[in-house]
Write a protein that binds this DNA or RNA. Structure first.
Lengths: 250, 250
DNA sequence: AAGTGGTCTAGACCACGCA
DNA sequence: GCGTGGTCTAGACCACTTT
């Protein structure tokens, strides 16, 4: 990585810097390798540290870099493809063997206004909540909150309900007794809340992809899941819509 | 639920600022209203302009604000839901009446390496390319590049092919003569390239949701589309997987 | 204790939209 | 021409991890 001089170009310095760095990453660095620290990089390119940081920020947003306070900046591996809607509609926790979700906690809480509206319950009514984490290669990919109104789980008595992760499993088990009719999802960009950030090993405000899933059963919305995926490391895949839907179309 | 341990958490100024502003947006501002300018806001909150900007940046990322150079900062309307996989697999341009995509340009070009690999063609082979824009309420939502290898369009002679948008329409029409077998998609975070940024009425580097769609026909990948959606204004929806897939599952 | 990235400041100038 | 947001600087200190 040489000291490529920055010419006076119409494009912003940080943009040009990002291009130069990006090419250097392709040709001169291996995945996992540690870059020189920010102060040295800034000096080497003859820019202020803030400007250098603006370039690094973009590269991190694109999943090319990974920065960790107290450690350094490393070259990130390619994003992992994460199946979000494959292979068919299923209740959370129903995948059996290959389930990568781990229930963390369970309880009751008042859902966010947006979720209450989707569930069609009063905005101040507490509902069952399950917290889960999705791992891959012992690295956290996503943190999820699943909201289930009491009406959806008639078999769940509040007497025999344990607490913590055990309770989460009970709620998930009860859910699977319902016949799932359909499921729809939405993806949008967000920034990690403090609790999600801790779970995802990121700083608060880190960019995340928020996947909202609506589960429908018995003619109404039976549950809503809000999953936040690390935007830097994840590529969300929406599985092959072949076979099944072709029956519909044909 | 939850262990609300109150650690010694020195919350960054910009984070607190973001919370305060967010609440103010909810209670004191209407959609479309113009906020005071950055210098005044910074003075009002007693912080440097850079710090204030860090808070505004996050709020813009979350779709709460819209900032435009030379104009000002306005309160953004709620994100629009954009159907990306609904209702079933179809070639681009096949929606008939309600098609919101507008072909912009057509021609030939060498695809990016990642696309060439998906298409299973040599990385230096030019392919047909269609540029389209997706509009909603006369505002651009997405810019797309559709890559189609010549082998996928045996009926397209290079003699009678026009140029520009007309050519784009010819390519799309030819595509629809193939029987589409399946389609899969992936969503990831990216930053707008200069050309996409211009099309989307944003600055280069603006956060976008990149949707990569792989169209399969005749047992192979017949086309690949890379669509970049404005992350600030779009919520991507993946339609109801009910009916059709239930046939598979049941 | 040393070194890293994260936050913050107080300025300056530039690019753009609009009257 | 004026006011807006966008870029850039040269510092300082803080939070965190590792040694």
């Amino acid at each position: 990585m040489g000291t490529t001089q920055l010419e006076t170009v119409p494009e912003p310095k940080y943009w040009h810097l990002k291009t130069v760095l990006s090419e250097a990453l392709d040709s001169e660095f291996a995945v996992g390798e540690i870059l020189p620290n920010e102060r040295e990089l800034a000096a080497r390119f003859g820019v202020a540290r803030a400007t250098l940081r603006q370039a690094l920020e973009q590269l991190e947003l694109e999943g090319r870099l990974q920065r960790r306070r107290g450690v350094g900046t490393t070259v990130a591996p390619p994003r992992v493809g994460v199946a979000v809607a494959d292979p068919g509609p299923a209740w959370p926790g129903a995948d059996g063997t290959a389930d990568t979700w781990q229930p963390v906690d369970g309880g009751e809480a008042i859902p966010p206004a947006a979720v209450a509206e989707l569930l069609n319950v009063a905005p101040d009514r507490p509902v069952h909540v399950v917290r889960r984490t999705r791992m891959s290669r012992s690295q956290p990919l996503a943190a999820e909150l699943l909201y289930v109104p009491a009406e959806s789980l008639p078999g769940l008595s509040s007497i025999d309900a344990p607490t913590g992760a055990a309770r989460a499993r009970v709620i998930l088990r009860e859910l699977q007794r319902l016949e799932l009719e359909s499921r729809d999802q939405a993806v949008e960009l967000g920034s990690a809340r403090a609790d999600d950030a801790r779970e995802l090993d990121r700083l608060p405000g880190a960019p995340v992809l928020v996947v909202t899933t609506r589960y429908r059963a018995q003619g109404r919305t039976a549950a809503v899941a809000v999953a936040t995926y690390r935007a830097d490391t994840c590529r969300l895949t929406f599985g092959d819509t072949g076979g099944g839907v072709r029956l519909l179309a044909g």
